[in-house]
Design a protein around this nucleic acid. Structure first.
Length: 480
RNA sequence: GCCCUCUUAGCUCAGCUGGUUAGAGCGACGGACUGUUAAUCCGUAGGUCCCAGGUUCGAGUCCUGGAGGGGGCGCCA
């Protein structure tokens, strides 16, 4: 057997100095005519063609070369006389590491529905679609770190288990080691959490924001990038119970600066995807087009995937205040003609999905940043404007997926913060640390949360967020 | 939590207003094939029509309940 180096399919397809000896390892996609193996190792969309001399290979090995089998091929990379590829391997020797019985191997060389693949999520990494999605997901993560690193942001590992249960971002999952059948009780019959592992109640974090604020008060610019958890029974294509969030927090920054940062980050990430993953995006674009062929025209994506990404880069995001947005919506046709399910009449009402979609997809036809929201519909930590009615919060809305970023300038005036906490019933002693950073060396600061899986969803064109994360968790479903 | 919708072969789906032995493509299996590109050609096998009741002379088709999938709304990232 040859002792040639092991190359990835990606390396071989890019190689210029041919011919050369090589070893490749991967999984068989198809085996045509007892002669042509299409091999994929997850490094590219394109498979490598391996040409087999069937007379030189024993019958059992030949029989085991079926879709899904893991093989190792030793041979020479040569220019391909065939039409579909530039180079191919002429194999001298093939080892089947793991056969895949074609009688019961679920993946066939044909289209499968995403729902079916989701039901065999442990195998979907082997497909071109999920290979492309997860390579892009990786690339976006790298790009996020590079982006922040280049701007002197420090990557903060915010805790996953949190003692803080008043972030207000949603229902939390409890973390406990107590016996659910027989928990220690207090005299009044309630559970005695002081006997639990941490000596008090603990939960999975819904956001690293509050911890990021603490770190920004010493490191100036930080960001978190980690899993967050919400026990909301959301049944939609854009919610997960476990999802990844990117949360930059910047000391001395005001709302405008954070809006600039959000727009720059999103554009950078899309630019990065277009530049580094053109093959994946072309593949995903075609996949989306094929899938949408069955749909009526009005339900299809308004433009192809790559064009959509370029379009987001082409213009500044539309920035409007809540009040401006409210006035546009109130005067809009669907509101006047009562086409909206929720009609807008009074200032202060929260926008519904249909309103956000109208602004983004019909009125402005580009990403929209809405800011200065009514205080009542936003979190307690947002900076109260001088009008006493609105807070310096902002949402970045994207076509198709809605809110991709939510952020704000934080309230720094301790007495205003205490008042708002009291209004919604947060005990000040629970949040002393949060008040302390206003007490000593407080300063204006702002930040936002980017839904990483929603970003992956947007860039890859996956309609369901469950197909943008390797192992989705949602109400009623957890596997692996 | 509310609403809509779907479940027929391994996969994707067809099956008209209830009416004989439930169909196709792909896949699988057997065979042919030395430049194919989800190869092609010939042949074969493969179904508890999601489950449980009910209506009916007769149910894949209608009704009720249940399970599972998908979608919409709310909540948000």
């Amino acid at each position: 057997m040859s002792s040639a180096p092991h190359y990835s399919v990606k390396q071989i397809l890019k190689a210029n100095d041919i011919p050369f000896p090589a070893v490749v390892k991967g999984w068989v996609r198809t085996f045509r005519q007892n002669q042509f193996i299409a091999l994929n190792d997850g490094t590219t969309v394109q498979p490598l063609q391996i040409v087999v001399d069937s007379s030189a290979i024993d019958g059992q090995t030949l029989k085991n070369i079926t879709p899904g089998a893991a093989i190792e091929a030793h041979g020479t990379i040569v220019e391909s006389p065939g039409k579909g590829q530039r180079v191919e391997m002429q194999a001298q020797h093939i080892t089947v590491h793991g056969p895949a019985d074609p009688n019961n191997y679920p993946l066939q060389p044909k289209k499968h529905s995403l729902e079916f693949l989701r039901s065999i999520a442990h195998l979907r990494f082997k497909t071109n679609t999920f290979g492309a999605v997860f390579r892009l997901r990786h690339g976006l993560a790298i790009a996020i770190h590079e982006f922040f690193h280049s701007k002197d942001f420090y990557y903060l590992h915010s805790p996953i288990i949190t003692a803080s249960d008043c972030e207000g971002a949603g229902e939390m999952f409890r973390v406990t080691t107590l016996d659910p059948k027989n928990p220690p009780l207090k005299e009044d019959g309630s559970v005695d959490w002081s006997k639990d592992f941490f000596g008090r109640e603990a939960h999975l974090t819904v956001s690293g924001q509050l911890e990021a604020e603490l770190a920004a008060m010493g490191l100036t610019r930080v960001y978190t990038f980690g899993p967050t958890f919400r026990a909301e029974k959301s049944h939609t294509t854009r919610h997960l119970a476990e999802f990844w969030m990117v949360e930059p927090e910047v000391a001395f920054a005001r709302l405008n600066e954070i809006m600039d940062l959000a727009e720059e980050l999103l554009k950078h990430l899309i630019q990065y995807s277009l530049q580094h993953y053109p093959d994946e995006l072309a593949f995903l674009q075609k996949r989306l087009e094929d899938e949408e062929k069955q749909l009526p025209k009005e339900k299809r994506s308004p433009m192809p995937l790559i064009e959509k990404l370029q379009f987001v880069l082409s213009e500044p995001f539309q920035r409007i205040t809540y009040t401006e947005a409210f006035n546009i919506l109130k005067a809009s046709k669907p509101n006047k003609k009562k086409k909206f399910k929720y009609l807008l009449t009074d200032w202060g009402a929260d926008f519904q999905t249909e309103h956000e979609r109208y602004l983004v997809e019909k009125h402005f036809k580009k990403p929209v940043i809405i800011y200065n929201y009514p205080a009542e519909i936003k979190a307690f930590y947002m900076y109260l404007n001088d009008d006493g009615k609105t807070v310096r919060g902002m949402d970045v809305l994207f076509p198709g997926i809605g809110e991709i970023i939510g952020g704000s300038e934080r309230e720094t005036r301790i007495e205003v913060l205490q008042k708002r906490m009291a209004q919604i019933g947060i005990a000040p002693e629970e949040m002393q640390w949060y008040l302390d950073i206003r007490r000593w060396g407080g300063c204006p600061h702002a930040g936002f949360g980017l839904g990483f899986d929603r970003l992956v969803q947007f860039v890859t064109g996956m309609q369901n967020i469950r197909d943008a994360i390797p192992f989705p968790r949602y109400p009623g479903y957890v596997a692996y």
